[in-house]
């Protein structure tokens, strides 16, 4: 087979097709990963948000924050979430100053993918303080 100068276009076409194949195969890997990550994020976010809402029934969550009862808060969050989940809870006041002087957490993160859930609660006592609770969650991959 010989390639003459005026027939180099054929090689370009083949080259373009190979390039498109490469692009398609790259694209193939991206959406499947995105789907998995999205589901994973939704599950964790949903579990975290639901746990905080349940925990705050009758204003219990804000009462524990007001009393700076971090040990109880840690145990409560622990009992609401599956044992396999890592969590770290941080409480901020209205000026976004961190209030918990101890870690409200069950250890070190088990995964690099961490989902954060923000929840706003208010005390039922006279001062009507508003707190922002940030619950970070991770699941062993």
């Amino acid at each position: 087979m010989s390639f003459r100068a005026d027939q180099r276009g054929q090689i370009r076409v083949i080259e373009a097709l190979f390039a498109s194949l490469l692009i398609l195969s790259t694209i193939a890997l991206v959406p499947s990963q995105l789907g998995v990550k999205q589901t994973h994020y939704n599950t964790l976010y949903s579990e975290g948000a639901q746990a905080l809402v349940s925990l705050d029934s009758n204003g219990m969550l804000s009462n524990m924050i007001e009393d700076s009862n971090w040990a109880s808060l840690k145990h409560c969050v622990q009992s609401m979430l599956p044992v396999s989940l890592w969590f770290n809870l941080t409480v901020f006041d209205e000026n976004m100053t961190c209030l918990n002087d101890v870690f409200v957490s069950n250890g070190s993160p088990v995964s690099e993918e961490i989902v954060a859930v923000n929840y706003v609660c208010a005390t039922s006592s006279g001062n009507y303080a508003v707190y922002t609770v940030q619950l970070q969650l991770a699941e062993a991959s």
């Binding site: 076409v13 083949i14 097709l17 190979f18 498109s20 194949l21 398609l24 195969s25 193939a28």
Partner: peptide
């Protein structure tokens, strides 16, 4: 070219 086009179509469908 025909082979590559057919393969591309098949691969696209599978993807």
């Amino acid at each position: 070219i025909v082979i590559v086009v057919v393969m591309s179509m098949a691969a696209t469908t599978r993807i």
